[in-house]
Amino acid sequence: MNATDRTPADLLRSALAADAARPLVTFYDDATGERVELSVATFANWVAKTANYLQDELSAEPGDRLALLLPGHWQAAVWLMACHSVGVVADPGGDAAAADLVVAGPDTLQAARACSGERIALSLRPLGGRFPEAPAGFRDYAVEVPGMGDRFAPYAPVDPEEPALIVAGREFTAAEVVERARAEAPGLGLTGPASRILSGLPYDTWEGVAAGLYAPLAIGGSVVLCRHLDRLAEDSLATRVDSERVTATAR
């Protein structure tokens, strides 16, 4: 990654320029057997569509707060980066009542109803499938986002010194997210582009979002993001570590 990258969105742009075809996020759900692999280009495409949706359809603006009530999931990673692309403050696991808009999965719909702004629901079904019927009071992400544009340009440049992330009650600017991710990457066992970390941590702590997205992105590596990892037997986990060429783990 470039030393001049000061926001998470900058890191993603640099990853695209360096090698758009390499894997960035590989996702497993050990409750359903789902496996999804997203290259840098595919991940960035989802981010662009979601950022366009945030900016143009939901009228989100820099400084707005989004409560992200999703587990560690590839779509949660997309939403984090879409927020960073627009300048919206992402609050994983945050209080929906204090947010301007909320994104929820099927298990957090009730908590999300506390938000008085726009509410977006994700089914978290394999292949990003739709709900059979959208939950009352929510927009179905899988219905609305696929048709959005594949390229994104913010109406105003994202300021690295403005708030970008609230996690476990602590606020970080965009620049602080990048700086801390870079600084902590070696401690996670991430040393360069060949590094590949397996993370089973949720996204509602700094440790979870660092291992599950920011640190591998900051050093040009990749992540194997695992949901329901506790359902996987140790011998099966060892097989996954070997087959996915994992170099570090966070559990």
Rank of each mutant, 00 (worst) to 15 (best):
A3F: 12
R6D: 12
R6S: 08
A9V: 09
L12M: 06
A15M: 06
A20D: 09
T26R: 14
D30N: 13
T32R: 09
E34Q: 11
L38C: 15
S39L: 07
S39Q: 05
N45T: 10
W46T: 14
T50E: 13
Y53R: 03
A60H: 02
E61R: 14
R65K: 07
L66T: 07
L68H: 02
P71Q: 05
W74L: 13
A76F: 00
A77I: 09
L80C: 04
H84F: 13
H84D: 14
V86N: 00
V88H: 00
P92C: 04
P92N: 09
D95G: 08
A98P: 11
V102T: 05
V103D: 02
A104Y: 00
G105K: 02
A111P: 08
A114Y: 01
A114E: 05
S116A: 08
G117V: 00
A121F: 01
L124I: 08
L127I: 13
L127Q: 14
R130S: 07
P132V: 09
A142N: 01
V143I: 09
E144G: 04
V145G: 01
D150C: 07
P154W: 00
E162I: 13
P163N: 10
F172Y: 11
T173P: 08
A174W: 01
V177G: 08
E179N: 12
R182T: 03
R182P: 00
R182D: 07
E184P: 10
L188C: 03
G189V: 00
G189K: 04
R196Y: 13
P202L: 04
D204Q: 15
A211T: 12
L213F: 03
G220K: 00
S222D: 02
S222P: 03
S222V: 04
V223K: 04
R227E: 10
L229S: 11
L232Q: 07
A233H: 09
A233W: 15
A233F: 15
S236F: 10
S243V: 15
E244W: 10
T247S: 08
T249F: 11
A250G: 05
R251I: 13
